[in-house]
Amino acid sequence: MSSRPQPVIGRRAVLRGAALGLGAGGLLSACGIPAAKQSADSCLSTDLSATEKTLIFSNWPSYMDESKEKVNGQTVLPTLAAFEKQTGIKVTYTADVNDNAEFYAKVRDQLGACQPCGRDIFVLTDWMAARTVGLGWIQKLDHANLPNVDKNLLQQLKAPRWDPNRDHSVPWQTGLTGIAYNAKFTKEVGSFADLLSRGDLKGKVTMLSEMPDTMSFMLRLEGADPNKFDDAAWNKALERLSRYVASGQIRRFTGNDYVQDLNAGNIVACQAWSGDVLALQADNPDIKFVVPEEGLALWSDNLLVPNKAAHKANAEALMNYYYDPEVAATLAAWVNYICPVDGARAAMEKVDPELVDSPLIFPDKTVLDKTFAFMPLDTAKAKLYETDFNLAIGG
């Protein structure tokens, strides 16, 4: 058993906005006005990195490697401390991205008005990252400062539809959404069609409260492509979900609190995130992760530099640092999600040999070829779809 520290709260433990009625649709309309678009021409930023060696970094909880030691009462973050020592850049690090929509609400007024939001770099999931890029709120990156990123970014992540040249974003960590089951209580569940129809599973399964995760698979079951679909396909997928809810097949919709129920056998199978499953498997070998017949949803959480951030080059230095394979492997060994850095698997031989063959950190090409992404949505469409989804799941 590895002695590496394990995060107490997973990166997605707090992603329960939809289930709690706090989906992006509600938050986006909270101020009663549409989000204001900007552009590189209308919202100019000045970079002070040459004279100010500082960086303000907002990230998700438990999404940075930690040490058991403390200095002046503060937890040591080893790779970040090494970055500071190597570059002389002092990082103010805060784990205050508790929910994509909630964080959007924190910064929307400033960024919409072309004002500083108090951060030089933050991390958002694909669908929300796409929204902020589409609104013109994110600075264009200088790839001359990102040689490690250009060299080592996994091929499958290089050209998302919402940022095809990675001009505005760099993946921080990546994950898979598939199926998990507890082999102590049920036989293998190989597809979402089975998960949502088998009689022996009725009332013993959960789905995720994040709309893109769950609706991706409803679309797949309808024969549609989650990365490119129209309203007709959406409506059919939504009707399918409503039927599953009405049948009682689905016990509830969750954030990553499904892990406790799955571990205890209160549920026997579920839609699941890969990092959660890997953490569970460390103590419970009965927990299995399945590549379902419908494929796997692939998502990333992305590093972004907002408009009016005054330390873009410093942020780019941090991005480039974390794309060094050994640094990336060290981080991946702690957070347990897919490492987006080519070469990190070889580096893991030295960092933590037990994880070299982990398919949930280093999936092979066969697995990655079965992945798909959810279509980027503009603000109006996202609000409509999130409202539809909340109504369907009873949120």
Rank of each mutant, 00 (worst) to 15 (best):
Q6K: 09
G17C: 10
A18E: 13
G21S: 09
L22Q: 12
G23R: 00
Q38C: 04
A40L: 15
T51S: 14
E52R: 09
T54R: 12
S58C: 11
P61A: 05
P61D: 08
S62N: 15
V71H: 08
V76W: 01
T79A: 10
F83Q: 01
F83I: 05
E84Q: 09
K90T: 14
V91A: 06
T92R: 09
A95W: 03
A105K: 15
Q110V: 03
G112Q: 05
Q115R: 11
P116T: 05
C117R: 01
R119K: 12
I121D: 02
D126L: 07
A129W: 12
G134H: 01
G136T: 05
L141H: 07
D142N: 06
N145G: 01
P147C: 11
D150V: 07
D150F: 00
R166D: 07
D167G: 03
D167P: 03
V170Q: 00
T177K: 12
Y181I: 03
A183G: 02
K184M: 08
F185E: 11
G190E: 03
A193F: 01
K202F: 02
M207W: 08
M218F: 12
M218Y: 12
L219D: 15
R220F: 07
R220A: 10
P226S: 06
D230I: 02
D230M: 02
Y244E: 05
V245H: 09
G248H: 10
Q249C: 14
F253N: 02
G255Q: 01
Y258H: 13
Q260M: 07
D261C: 01
Q271D: 05
A272P: 02
L278M: 13
Q281I: 00
N284A: 04
I287N: 11
L296R: 08
A297R: 15
L298G: 04
L303M: 15
L303T: 14
V305L: 06
A309F: 15
A315T: 11
L318F: 15
Y323D: 10
D324Q: 13
A328H: 07
W334N: 01
D342N: 14
V351A: 15
P353A: 15
L355V: 05
P359E: 13
F362D: 07
D364M: 12
T366Y: 00
V367W: 04
K370C: 00
T371V: 00
M375E: 15
K383W: 02
T387W: 06
N390E: 15
